[in-house]
Design a protein around this nucleic acid. Structure first.
Lengths: 206, 206, 206, 206
DNA sequence: AATGAATGAGAGTTCATTCAT
DNA sequence: AATGAATGAACTCTCATTCAT
């Protein structure tokens, strides 16, 4: 019904507004440096309301991280599902997509990395597990792409899983670097292409 | 002569014992999840004693991180300074060294990564700066190796800095993976060699 | 209109209750001998609540001292502003007022004296400055009264400032003594009058 | 015997050196702001040695205060015992003596005043009692002088005790003021004489 | 239903005193 | 006998969460 759906839409919007505010603060001050009072104040939502939408500080953080990681995962999923595209092209697309995603989500990226580094694994073991699981899924997507590429004679028959891991980290590092450089679009594209060429052609002479 | 008084030796030993305990706890629970009381209890040193050796929780953490990062830096420095070694071999050595270092220092590695991820940059900006500086130095060492390799006709003339960054992250990722696999020495060596071959020869079929 | 919301009134009352409790304890045990936990326990307000009203132990102490000193200052100001009163009478009024104030605020008086004595000037320099400033203002009021008295031919032409200081301290000492005697109202009045006569007529014969 | 007496003299000297250092620090930072470690460092005496001479921080403080107050008491005793001197002159002498004492002992004076204000009566009740007792003795000396003066027809027959209290506080206030003025010897003498004249002749015109 | 004031456990750190050397 | 490193109780203050309004 319309009434319910309006309420739902409002809820969704509020939730998102709160999350966005929380994201900025978490990224700036870290999980422990951020207080619920700050989030309440900055987001203009009363504390009680925030606790209506989230069961606690930790869950909020979980939501935030998982939501964003999922977003990135979806992008890769889209790319990997394309039918008429070569493996090579899919990888290149993924590389560009990741860099773009990092550029427009630099705040959350810090958090994602931090989570991956496991540091609060004891305090938030579930989040950590989930993040790693999603990371694994993304690597799996790459693995599938490499399997396709090997099948199609594009790539050498290295173990697809190992290549996927290496590629995933190259993509991360190339994208991460984006956040600390003042590159224009052109320079970014050139750099990414060069890195991709390194990866495919190797750095050795012959 | 090694005129270290007994007191000094004792001090050094105690300091190290405390640091070791702290390391375990920091690695397991993170900076914020660790309490001085825990370190005191676990290390069997009274709180007051710990504060004799370290001016506070934060300084302890700093010491811990910087000390270990320096250790890794020294290893790379040794390798890069070798005279009669080809660039190729130096890189291979570095890759193996990094993996071994990660294996024997898995606890501190989590901390190092966490620091690099910037998450508490506001709370501990100085540590962060220093860690990044040391990371930069390590990348610089790799860059020098690549410059040597390019000069000697071993490597293609990619921008040395970009290759260095890529290589550094591949090395990290390959070593990091070590911590979550049950590989014997043999399997590890094979994997590292394969990854290095990928990196040098490229994954594409021409 | 007195549109003080109930909340504001409650706040004010609570604040005052806490201050009153704190006052007793500070007066009995001094600043350093008093713990926030004691104030919390004695006042029946939880620690967190106390920190809602006061930003810390020191600020509480400041508030307490300044508030009370101001109160006394206002009393003197009232007296000194009276139009139709002789200087002599104003001084007598001030003397009585001070004694009464000491009687009904014996706890805070100890604190005031302690502050004036400068002992924690390094730890709480601002409070000390303010208290001394207010003390100076009170002496200035007396000075003005003496100037009036000299102009009117009531008093000898001693430097008004010096007489004011002497009078201020006589008033303090006479009032202070009140706290350690078991005088009825009658005896108090007689003693103060006698002291005032000593001050005005001198103790020497001819 | 000579050997013992040398030891005793050394002990006495060391004790005094420690006390002098402690005095400076107590006066500057207050009782609670001063740490035993500071006294040890500043005085160049090891902590253990200090605890040989004093049973604790508090006793040190006691010794310090009592010693100095006694010194002042002795001065007044000397003056009051003089045979051929008029009461008037004895008071004048006392006034000058007090001012000089304050000038050369400004550090301890702050402490003395602080003690008199009773603020740590619960923490150091014995010291407080003793200081007040000594203060009382000094007032008693003044009282005896006034009784002498009244007997000799120098002073009006006010209750000697009350005059003594008033005089004692005037003397304190006049001396205290010394610490915050930049008076030369001449100006000081004039001021004290004027204050004494005020006290004896009264401030009123007949 | 929505709010935000109230709560109190638990954090990091200090320092008077002891006592093994 | 002289030392000063070692001790740990006790301090102030913070903040995630609750629940009365």
């Amino acid at each position: 019904m319309a009434t319910i759906s309006r309420k739902e839409r409002d809820d969704q919007r509020r939730r998102q507004e709160i999350l966005n505010t929380a994201l900025s603060i978490f990224a700036a001050k870290g999980f422990h440096g951020t207080t619920m009072a700050q989030i309440s104040q900055e987001s203009q939502y009363p504390l009680g309301t925030i606790y209506k939408y989230f069961s606690g500080k930790q869950q909020m953080y979980h939501d935030l991280v998982l939501h964003k990681v999922q977003e990135l995962g979806l992008i890769f999923l889209e790319i990997s599902k394309e039918k008429e595209t070569t493996a090579r092209q899919k990888l290149l697309d993924s590389l560009f997509a990741k860099a773009r995603f990092y550029q427009s989500n630099d705040e959350v990226i810090r958090i994602y990395i931090s989570e991956r580094s496991n540091i609060d694994a004891v305090l938030m073991p579930k989040l950590n597990q989930k993040v790693n699981k999603m990371h694994q899924k993304m690597v799996d997507l790459f693995q599938a792409i490499f399997e396709q590429g090997i099948r199609d004679g594009e790539f050498k028959a290295y173990p697809a899983k190992e290549i996927a891991i290496v590629f995933s980290d190259i993509a991360h590092s190339a994208s991460w670097a984006t956040l600390f450089r003042e590159e224009d679009e052109e320079a970014l594209q050139q750099r990414l292409k060069m890195i991709f060429e390194m990866f495919t052609q190797g750095v050795s002479i012959n």
